[in-house]
Design a protein around this nucleic acid. Sequence first.
DNA 1: CCCTGATTCGC
DNA 2: GCGAATCAGG
Length: 178
Amino acid sequence: MSWTDERVELLKRLWTEGLSASQIAGRLGNGVTRNAVIGKVHRLNLSGRVQQQRVAAPRAPRKQREPSLAPRAGGSMPSMPTAGSSALKPMMRAETHIRPAAIPEPQPLRLVDLPKDGRVTILHLSDKTCKWPIGDPGSEEFCFCGHGPREGSPYCEYHARLAYQPLQDRRNRKVNFG
DNA sequence: CCCTGATTCGC
DNA sequence: GCGAATCAGG
């Protein structure tokens, strides 16, 4: 399995949402390990997901790795056909602007800290803000939805549907290789 | 022990 | 670029 655009997008979304690497690995499935997720996260330069400042504590120098005698599991995977997942791409691409186009009811922002320039940044996130990410996390325009969330959800009504609809579909096409 | 992310480096 | 092995730590 490779890092398709769809899987990278899902990785970014789940990572931003705060899921752990192993949880994300479980969702991606197809034998993806948490190491794979962490490695990809670092390669995408989105390792610091919240505004925590990085203390850059240098670790002690690592012991030289033992020469690999046993074959590693990195070889070949049974290639799965990427079922109609490409149909989901237009949806995600459509979210790439400052604010999603169609929200059922334009409920007013109920923020504790109001964004100064109209964008809900990661600094404005709270229990009262929808945490659906909008745009590229590395971009200047990156922000969050910020509408009032559905109870018990990190997302507003609209984005909660977007977030969890695919999961419901997934129940009937359980994919396990072996 | 369970888990977390961070890093290295052979592939 | 990828990710197992290994690290440091909760």
